[in-house]
């Protein structure tokens, strides 16, 4: 495996980690707001709070890791993406900042349940994936013009293109689906039947829109970048596996059993699709201006980064194991038997 491929694979894996962990968080916020709004009250509040509180900061680190790593392995991306993404990414940043800090304010100040806050928390959770997903659309090419050697983003073209909106739609629906499947399991684990049943209903409900939005993207992609579409067809088997996993997940949810396996299959489903998409995007980071090869850093730096990465993993894996063991898989913690908050 060349260093270029190794680098982009690691980054893509961490971005995938962010997509899953953040989706659970974003979706949970939205479901919570929704349930408060239609006066089902705080059915979800407890479960969500137990899961989110210890992990919200970790979610953010996945994102930081991804963009710092991208600039490290592919410094040329800093120039192209840095120049064109000023506005969209600044907006995402502001949303992330408000959401993250007000989450901390609310949950640690001991004065919870403010309705305006709950709504804002729910809505920003949908706007953040929507605004971040724009970057994927831009990477498909066709929205960047080089004027006087400087890249410029063509906003009008970007926002009138149906591809943009179909990717935005998928990002939102995926967030809701991923979150609902996870919380179905976590609610069950926390012995909160109400929450679990409600989330199961949402998971099943959002499964159809998920398929529709995926098909929508395929159609748009075929028209916008036929080359990428062809590449995806060549990898049909990855997407086929993803589809099968999706169906099994639905069956398990429908039969109300093995929610743990359902979560695992759901993550695998998105994994296959995410990597299928990523591989078919190869070798371009920004079509057609930068590829993983011409933007790659020097070999010495690449090796140093890989060594640092391996060293970092040695620290990370045991630490993440502890988080999983104490908060996610600990039944007593999930249902609130331990309340050891500082």
């Amino acid at each position: 495996m060349s260093l270029e491929i190794l680098g982009i694979s690691v980054l893509w894996l961490f971005l995938f980690g962010y997509v899953i962990v953040a989706s659970i968080d974003f979706g949970a916020g939205f479901f919570n707001a929704y349930s408060v709004l239609i006066s089902k009250d705080h059915i979800l509040a407890n479960v969500i709070k137990r899961y989110l509180s210890p992990v919200w900061e970790i979610t953010n680190v996945f994102l930081v890791f991804f963009f710092v790593g991208t600039v490290g392995f592919f410094p040329q991306t800093a120039y192209y993406y840095g120049t064109i993404l000023l506005v969209p990414v600044s907006i995402s940043l502001i949303l992330i900042a408000i959401r993250g800090s007000y989450y901390a304010f609310e949950s640690y100040s001991g004065k919870g349940g403010h309705i305006g806050y709950t709504m804002m928390y729910g809505i920003t959770g949908l706007f953040i994936p929507a605004s971040l997903s724009i970057v994927l659309t831009i990477s498909e090419g066709g929205f960047v013009k080089i004027v006087n050697d400087e890249p410029h983003l063509q906003f009008a073209k970007l926002f009138t293109n149906p591809l943009t909106w179909s990717i935005v739609l998928l990002s939102i629906v995926a967030v809701l689906y991923i979150s609902a499947v996870f919380l179905t399991w976590y609610g069950k684990r926390a012995q909160d039947e109400h929450a679990s049943n409600l989330m199961r209903k949402y998971a099943l409900g959002w499964s159809l829109p998920l398929i529709i939005s995926v098909i929508g993207i395929m159609v748009e992609l075929k028209g916008h970048v036929p080359e990428h579409y062809e590449n995806m067809l060549d990898l049909w088997w990855l997407f086929a596996i993803s589809g099968v996993l999706f169906l099994i997940t639905l069956v398990l949810l429908f039969k109300k059993k093995n929610y743990g396996i359902a979560v695992f299959l759901m993550v695998a489903q998105f994994g296959f699709a995410f990597f299928g998409y990523g591989i078919s995007h190869y070798p371009y980071l920004l079509y057609p201006y930068i590829s993983v090869y011409d933007s790659f850093t020097n070999e010495t730096m690449a090796i140093a980064l890989v060594i640092a990465f391996v060293g970092g993993l040695v620290l990370l894996i045991p630490s993440l194991y502890l988080v999983m063991k104490w908060f996610v898989f600990d039944r007593d913690y999930a249902c609130g038997k331990h309340d050891h908050h500082v």
């Binding site: 900061e57 970790i58 953010n60 680190v61 930081v64 890791f65 710092v68 790593g69 600039v71 490290g72 392995f73 410094p75 850093t297 730096m301 140093a304 980064l305 640092a308 990465f309 060293g311 970092g312 620290l315 990370l316 630490s319």
Partner: peptide
């Protein structure tokens, strides 16, 4: 880029 990258791990462990 190396120390920037290493910082994300330090931050990870801290978080």
């Amino acid at each position: 880029a190396l120390p920037l990258f290493m910082e994300t791990f330090a931050f990870f462990v801290e978080a």
